[in-house]
Computed example of a mutant assay.
Amino acid sequence: MSAFNLLHLVTKSQPVALRACGLRSGSCRDKKNCKVVFSQQELRKQLTPLQFHVTQEKGTESAFEGEYTYHKAHGIYKCVVYLFVSVCMSETKFDSNSGWPSFYDVINSDTVTFTDDYSYGMHRIEISCSQCAAHLGHIFDDRPRPTGKRYCINSASLSFEPVDEDSAGEGSSSFPAAQTDKAEL
């Protein structure tokens, strides 16, 4: 058994950081427990290579280069894999100077799951879509009131739906528009 697996077994029942953050633990990473499951082939057709890397391989996009990093339009940010899951609202978005879109809260705590992440030699809390297990980003305890949380979410894992057509200004492209720029694998 690898050190990571052993550490995961030990912390799975008592995730210290999740308890400290006041968040519930749980994950849909085991596809058997997901409510919506897509085949890898289907996802490769649906998503851009970057979207696939971030959501399915727990990747991250380059800092300050994501489509929604400087995005100011009013609306709802949804999971790019399963568009029926609304993750965050523009009203909770703030500039964290971290290089990724940051929010101080999610729309509903049932839309995301939190899992201990020990990659890169550090402990973080991963945020995933509760319906399809797509990797969204990470949560940190270092930001504004009222929650004190920073939901640091990759633009590549999000789709944006403007509140109305007047809000659909520059930088607020929706999921279908992102598909037109998809590169072949």
Rank of each mutant, 00 (worst) to 15 (best):
A183N: 11
T113G: 03
Y151W: 15
F38K: 09
G137T: 08
Y104T: 03
M89L: 14
E42Y: 14
S98E: 02
G26Q: 08
G99L: 05
D142A: 01
D181H: 09
S86R: 03
D110A: 05
V36E: 01
V80S: 08
G66I: 01
I107R: 05
C34P: 00
G99F: 06
E165S: 15
F140R: 04
T113Y: 01
Y70S: 10
T180R: 04
G169T: 12
A134T: 03
N108G: 07
D166K: 13
K31A: 06
I153L: 15
F114L: 08
K58C: 09
L47M: 13
F103A: 02
V37N: 10
K93F: 00
S159R: 07
V54D: 02
V10G: 06
S109I: 14
N5Y: 06
V37T: 15
C132E: 02
F64S: 05
P101N: 01
V81Q: 00
S174R: 15
G22E: 08
R19W: 05
Q40N: 15
N5L: 08
P101I: 00
S157M: 07
D95A: 03
S173H: 12
L50D: 11
K32H: 07
K78D: 02
V106Y: 01
T115E: 14
F38R: 09
E65D: 11
G22F: 08
H123C: 15
A183M: 11
A168I: 01
L9V: 09
L23W: 07
L18D: 00
T11D: 08
D116P: 12
Y77M: 09
C34Q: 01
A20T: 10
G171W: 12
Q131D: 13
Y70F: 04
K32D: 04
Q56F: 10
Q41V: 11
A168C: 06
H135V: 05
I127L: 10
L23C: 05
P162I: 06
A17V: 01
R145H: 10
Q131V: 11
T115G: 08
T69A: 14
R145E: 10
A3L: 11
Y120N: 10
S98Q: 03
T48S: 14
L83V: 10
E170I: 11
I153V: 13
Q56R: 15
T48H: 12
S173I: 09
H74M: 13
G148M: 13
G75H: 02
C34R: 00
P49Q: 15
T113C: 10
G148D: 02
P15L: 04
S172P: 00
G137Y: 03
S96R: 00
N154V: 04
F103Q: 05
K35N: 07
L43V: 10
A73D: 11
H8Y: 08
E161I: 10
H53E: 09
P15A: 05
D117S: 11
G148S: 06
H138T: 08
P162A: 08
T48N: 12
S96H: 00
T48E: 11
T11I: 04
S128K: 11
R19D: 12
S39C: 10
R44D: 13
L136D: 05
M89W: 04
D181G: 07
W100N: 04
Q51S: 12
G22W: 07
